[in-house]
Simulated scan of single mutants.
Amino acid sequence: MNDTRIAIQLGDREIILIGTAHVSRESIDEVTRTIREESPGQVCVELDAGRYASISQNDSWEKLNIAKVFKEGKGFLLMANLVLSGFQRRMGDELGVKPGEEMKAALETANELGIPHGLCDREIQITLRRAWARCGLWSKCKLLASLISSAFTTEKMSEEEIENLKNHNELEGMMDELSSYLPKVKETLIDERDRYLAAKIWSSGIEAKTEKGLKQIAVVGAGHIKGIKSHLEKIFANEESADVSALEIIPPPGFLSKAAGWLIPLIIVALIAVGFIQAGAGVSLSMLLRWVLWNGSLAALGTLLALGHPLSILVSFVGAPIATINPFIGVGIFSGITEATMRKPRVGDAENIAEDVGSLRGIYHNRITRALLVFFLSSIGGMIGNFISIPSLAGLLAK
C-alpha cells in the first residue's frame, strides 16, 4: 500500500486521500501533481479558517490584540499554538519549506484549475481547548512539560527523517507512543479529528456531487489517513453519522476541576482562621503576611525571570493574593496585560513572531512573546507560592 495516497471507492464517489508531512517538499510536489493529473470535482484540505489566514495573509499576526487575549483567558491556548507552529517552522526552515505549504499549494492549484475547494478541519482553538479540558491534573502537567521542552529543543531532523514521517510503520510507532504518554490528548488531536475530517470531507462532497458522481481529493496529514478511511467507510455504510457538531463543544469542567479551583484558597483561609481562633490576631496576621510573601514574591520572581517591566513585577506581587482568593481570574492576566500596556507590541514583533518563537533569545526580544512569558511564569510562580505557603502556615499553627 502506498502510505501517502489512498483511493477509496464509495458508491459513485471516489475519494483520494493524500497524506503529507507538513514541512515536506515532496508533499508539495505530490499534491500539485495529483490534482493536475486527476482533475477532481472538489479539493479538501486539512485547514480551518484561522490557520488558512495565518499561512496566506502576511498581516495575520499584526491583527493580534495580546491584551484582549489575556482578558478572554486564552493566554495558555495562544502559547500552545505558538509553540506548536514554532516547532514546525524550525523543521521547515532547515528544508526551506514553510509549515502548511502543501495545503496552500493544493488550494492555489485548485483555484488555477477552477476546481471547487473547501477547508475541512476543526478550529485549532476548539481542538486545543477540548484537549486541555479532557486532561486531568497530571496529564496537564505532562502536556505543559512537553510544550516547554519542544519550544526550546535544538534537535534537528533531516529531510529523509521528515519524509519517513509519512511511512505507515513510523506513524504507528509515534501514535502508540503518544497514546501511552497522553491518551486523552491523542484522542482529541488524532482520533476525534480523524472522525471530524472524514465527516467534513463527506459533507462537502455532497454539494459538489453531480449525476455522474464525484471524484474528491483530500489533502491531510499522513497520521490521519488510516482513521479517515475507516470513518468514511462507516459514514457510507450508515454506521456513523456525518453530523460532528458535538465535537465542536468544549466539555464543561467536572466537579473535581471546579472544586480544585476553590480548594487552595479555602485551605489558606481556613488555616488563617484557625490561627486567629487558637492563637489570636497576632499569629493570624503573621500567617497572612507569610502567605502574601510566598505567593506574591514567587509570582513577582516569575515576572522578573521573564524580564518583565518593573510595574509588571509590582502588579504580580500585589495581584497574586487577589487572584488566589478569586479562582475565576489569574495573576497572569494582571501581569500580562500590564506588560502589554507598558511595552506595547511593535509592528516588527507581529511580523517576526513566527521566527522569534523558535529561540529563547527571540522570545525575550519579541514583546508579544515576552508578554506571554510574563503571563506564564507569573502564573506558575504564584501557583508554587500557594503550594509552599500551606505547609508553612500549618507549621506556624503547630508551634
Rank of each mutant, 00 (worst) to 15 (best):
E62S: 06
E62I: 00
E62A: 07
E62H: 04
L64F: 14
N65M: 09
I66P: 10
A67T: 14
K68L: 14
V69W: 09
V69Y: 06
E72V: 10
E72K: 15
F76A: 08
L77R: 06
L77G: 00
M79R: 13
M79W: 15
A80Y: 04
N81A: 13
N81I: 09
L82W: 07
V83W: 08
V83M: 10
V83A: 14
L84E: 10
S85C: 06
F87Q: 03
R89K: 05
R89D: 01
G92V: 04
G92W: 00
D93W: 08
E94S: 12
E94R: 12
L95S: 11
L95M: 14
L95H: 15
V97T: 07
V97L: 08
K98Y: 04
P99G: 01
P99A: 01
G100T: 08
G100V: 07
E101I: 07
M103P: 05
M103L: 08
A105V: 15
A105K: 13
A106D: 10
L107I: 14
L107F: 06
E108G: 09
T109I: 15
T109F: 13
T109N: 11
T109G: 10
A110H: 08
E112W: 02
L113T: 02
L113K: 06
G114Y: 13
I115M: 04
I115Y: 09
P116W: 06
H117N: 15
G118M: 11
L119C: 11
C120S: 15
D121Y: 09
E123I: 13
Q125E: 15
I126Q: 13
L128M: 14
L128W: 10
R130D: 03
A131Q: 02
R134P: 02
C135K: 00
C135T: 01
C135E: 00
C135Q: 00
C135S: 00
G136A: 05
L137H: 00
L137K: 01
W138N: 11
S139R: 09
K140T: 03
K140Q: 05
K140I: 03
C141G: 04
K142D: 10
L143P: 12
S146W: 03
S146R: 09
I148A: 13
S149P: 02
